[in-house]
């Protein structure tokens, strides 16, 4: 039997696993039947069609990317075509302008304001229809969320609320200031998978998964047995 070395097309979605809501994203990807992995070392990025930078603490994540020398790795893979989605903290890392401080990855032309709403007491939930993503209203969870205050001309605004932008995208980057991974809604994960050229499961056409609960991530983070 001969062995063929086939260079596969990148077909995985990675979740940056340094700090934050990692399990929550993995759980959504699993529900959509998408191949996924946690990424925390330079070599982990090789087969990624897409990377999710999860919610967490943006200042912390930015420091960790620098300290662990992963910033250039992400930029390199972005250049080779890897798509990136940042939720909340992830969106701050991707912005090329952060109000009052230095940008981190700078991969999307927009300006963002950290903690745009205030402290934890100002965190809230709401919902909205994002036409490009789904006809159904999408539940929105904002936790110490940033505000996107300006988007560049090549950036497509997906959702605008009051005086800020809550979701936007460019050809290679998607940003949301809310946390779809903290709701039962799979629509944005499906949207990102399609952007990455992958085929998410299509059963469950409604936007919100009926079996989801906030503890669903815990099956991926059980105690050490």
């Amino acid at each position: 039997m001969s062995v063929h070395l086939i260079r596969h097309k990148p077909d995985l979605i990675g979740v940056l696993d340094l700090q934050g809501g990692v399990h929550e994203h993995l759980e959504h990807l699993e529900r959509l039947g998408l191949p996924y992995k946690r990424v925390k070392l330079a070599e982990d990025f090789t087969n990624l069609a897409g990377l999710i930078i999860p919610g967490g603490e943006s200042t912390c994540l930015a420091r960790l990317l620098n300290i662990f020398e992963l910033k250039d790795v992400i930029l390199q893979h972005h250049r080779r075509g890897m798509k990136i989605w940042g939720t909340c903290a992830g969106a701050i890392l991707l912005a090329d302008k952060v109000l009052g401080e230095k940008a981190c990855l700078g991969l999307i032309d927009m300006e963002i304001e950290r903690n745009g709403f205030g402290s934890q007491l100002d965190s809230f939930k709401s919902e909205a229809v994002i036409g490009a993503v789904s006809d159904e209203p999408i539940p929105l969870t904002f936790i110490r969320a940033p505000k996107i205050i300006r988007a560049g001309k090549d950036v497509h605004v997906l959702l605008r609320i009051d005086d800020y932008i809550a979701a936007a995208e460019s050809d290679s980057v998607l940003v949301t200031i809310f946390h779809p991974e903290l709701t039962g809604c799979l629509a944005l994960h499906r949207y990102f998978a399609l952007k990455c050229g992958l085929n998410p499961a299509t059963e469950n056409p409604s936007a919100v998964h009926k079996n989801w609960e906030n503890s669903s991530w815990m099956k991926l983070a059980r105690i050490a047995l």
Binding site: G20, H23, G56, C60, T141
Partner: peptide, 27 residues
Amino acid sequence: LNVQLAQMLKGGVIMDVTNVEQAKLAE
């Protein structure tokens, strides 16, 4: 929302600080 904020802290280190200088160092 409060449980979820704690979820966002997962994998992180929370440090005791007694003044602004230490807080900045921790950050």
